[in-house]
């Protein structure tokens, strides 16, 4: 049984580690400014934890086989432990874990503590069962008021988020079912939800944030590559949770401007 255990534990260790190292399944290609740092931090954590994982599992398998009970086994070493070893081990883990944490906090701080830059593209994301709507404030830079009483998903995007079209600041608001953003420019998101909690998750941007009813959450990111990116709702929101996906189209500034102008023109 000792050999079987050794084989099984080592096998599990090698197979598990192989698929990580081979990157058979891995983080999708990063397409935002924070992706590089997050991936770097991820890789660093992965290497450190991977070493501990492999070392601990191999040691476990080896010890169980090596010190299995058999007639010719060496006598047991009577000991209640080794305080010095414990102190060393504890200190090392503490430094490793807390150090890792402090290293990772910089990007977190950038993304969450610093306000969006003044030139950022304003987009308001509204989550509802089970769709996403994206609103652009238009030339006046102001979002018009919305109201739950005006919401009617069957009457188009504007009615879906309950936009009060009578209000002057709402006149130039553009509401779309697909998110368009220009490449290389910061996007200043305002996240809202009208029924339950949803979560705006774009794996390629390494970006995720819950949209919470009753809160307007501000967050920003900068896409770096033109392309279509899938987003998925990442917070359980009800029976259609799995269907609540969306598209983020990162386009050139020029394409973005013409798209926005076309939407504005449609409204008139």
């Amino acid at each position: 049984m000792g050999l079987a255990l050794l084989v099984v534990i080592w096998l599990i260790t090698f197979v598990s580690t192989y698929f990580f190292i081979a990157k058979t399944w891995w983080l999708p290609h990063g397409a935002s400014t924070s992706a590089a740092f997050i991936d770097g931090q991820f890789t660093l954590t992965f290497i450190l934890m991977g070493i501990v994982f492999v070392a601990a599992q191999l040691a476990l398998g080896y010890l169980v086989w090596k010190f299995r009970d058999r007639p010719e086994a060496a006598p047991v070493e009577y000991s209640h432990g080794n305080t010095r070893l414990e102190v060393i081990w504890t200190t090392l883990t503490a430094i490793l874990f807390i150090g890792l944490n402090l290293m990772g906090s910089r990007v977190w701080a950038n993304e969450r503590f610093a306000p969006a830059s003044p030139g950022a593209v304003q987009v308001e994301v509204t989550g509802m069962q089970f769709a996403w709507y994206f609103r652009y404030p238009g030339p006046d830079g102001k979002y018009g008021p919305t109201s739950a009483k005006l919401m009617d998903a069957s009457a188009g995007s504007e009615a879906a988020i309950g936009l009060d079209t009578g209000d002057p600041s709402a006149k130039d608001d553009v509401v779309a079912g697909v998110m368009y953003v220009p490449v290389g420019r910061q996007v200043d998101l305002t996240l809202r939800a009208v029924d339950v909690i949803h979560s705006f998750f774009v794996p390629s941007f390494r970006f995720k944030q819950d949209a919470v009813p009753g809160l307007a959450i501000h967050m920003h990111f900068t896409p770096t590559e033109i392309g279509d990116y899938e987003m998925a709702c990442a917070e359980l929101c009800g029976l259609g949770h799995y269907k609540m996906h969306g598209m983020v189209k990162v386009v050139s500034q020029q394409d973005f401007d013409s798209w926005l102008a076309a939407r504005e023109a449609e409204k008139q």
């Binding site: 000792g2 601990a56 476990l60 010190f67 009970d69 070493e77 883990t93």
Partner: peptide, 19 residues
């Protein structure tokens, strides 16, 4: 948690493990 793991491995070390 790491202390516990370390100590479990330390317990196996030079034992006579009945499997």
């Amino acid at each position: 948690s790491a202390i516990k793991t370390f100590n479990w491995l330390g317990t196996l070390w030079h034992g006579r493990i009945r499997l």
